[in-house]
């Protein structure tokens, strides 16, 4: 028989064997690591479980969207952190998009000065670490501003080392402002390049047609070019949004109590490495998933529907 002779040459056999080996290796690895983890945790006297979340946190949190005091539980503290994270991500997405679109269009301006300023902005800030920029904004800029009783007033903004007051009277803390500014300006450089690429991908004929219809430059951009550029912009823009959400975890560098910062404090107090790791991972994965889901929905709307 041919079958018995050629087991070694049987594709089906190898496909099965390959997958079986993969499963065995992964299961063995997880089992090995899990067994070590169990033994090590037992030696440290830590019993795994999420019960500790109900005990009293005992640490204060600088700013919070919901009422919180140190006598509240760890779960409440982590919720405060999560809300703070969502707040900075939400604002960051808006501000970064604004900066990015402005700089991206400026990169294509007919004005030499505007074009090159945008180029310098992109090339300088894209090529230095975000963490360093956050330190710079917080320590070298915001903390050196004048005291709150003598703020710098500019366009309705009022800047001091106690925070930023927006034209509406809303006060943003120094930590939040420097994180928001750093995140948005850094992400803005990447968005600018995406916007520039998107606009450049629109065929020249579209510009010429728009101009010959008598549209003004602003109208031409808003009504003809940008909607078409969006098709090339949205998918990579989504990646930048995900990056911004993940990078918001650098809040700890400027002392803003986001989810990671609160979780890290919780770890220092309780030593619950595994539980906290799981909580952080699940939360960020959920945030990432929600953002990419929303972007996919929007992407389907802007993509070209052909006949």
């Amino acid at each position: 028989m041919v079958r018995t002779a050629s087991l070694w040459r049987n594709v089906k056999f190898w496909r099965f064997a390959g997958q079986a080996i993969a499963v065995i290796v992964v299961v063995a690895l997880i089992g090995f690591l899990g067994a070590n983890l169990n033994r090590n945790l037992a030696q440290l006297g830590i019993r795994p479980g999420f019960g500790f979340l109900q005990s009293q946190a005992g640490f204060a949190i600088g700013e919070s969207l919901i009422p919180y005091s140190p006598s509240d539980s760890y779960s409440r503290a982590l919720l405060v952190g999560l809300l703070n994270s969502l707040l900075v991500i939400g604002w960051g997405l808006v501000v970064a998009t604004g900066i990015g679109i402005t700089a991206g269009i400026a990169r294509l301006s007919s004005n030499w000065l505007v074009r090159n300023l945008a180029l310098v902005y992109v090339e300088v800030l894209r090529n230095t670490p975000l963490l360093l920029q956050l330190f710079f904004w917080y320590f070298a800029v915001f903390l050196t501003l004048p005291k709150p009783d003598n703020p710098i007033r500019w366009l309705g903004f009022s800047l001091s080392n106690g925070g930023v007051t927006l034209p509406g009277g809303l006060l943003l803390s120094t930590e939040f402002s420097s994180l928001l500014l750093g995140l948005s300006i850094y992400t803005g450089t990447f968005i600018a390049e995406i916007v520039r690429g998107g606009i450049e991908s629109v065929p020249k004929g579209q510009w010429e047609a728009g101009r010959s219809l008598g549209l003004k430059p602003g109208q031409l951009m808003r009504l003809i070019i940008f909607p078409q550029a969006l098709r090339a912009i949205i998918p990579p823009l989504g990646n930048q949004y995900l990056n911004l959400a993940k990078n918001s975890s650098l809040a700890i560098a400027v002392g803003f109590p986001d989810l990671y910062a609160v979780a890290s404090t919780t770890f220092n107090q309780t030593g619950r490495a595994v539980e906290i790791m799981i909580l952080i991972s699940l939360t960020y994965l959920t945030i990432s998933l929600v953002i990419s889901l929303l972007l996919n929905l929007y992407n389907r709307r802007v993509q070209l529907v052909e006949r």
């Binding site: 983890l37 595994v274 790791m277």
Partner: peptide, 30 residues
């Protein structure tokens, strides 16, 4: 397996992975 690993890691912030490496690595090794 490969897709799960890639997407899991890409969904997490680096700071979380470094935390894991600093804290968890000694715990999961014999």
């Amino acid at each position: 397996f490969c897709t799960a690993y890639i997407e899991l890691i890409r969904g997490l912030p680096l700071i979380g992975i470094l935390f894991m490496a600093q804290v968890m690595l000694p715990l999961v090794l014999p």
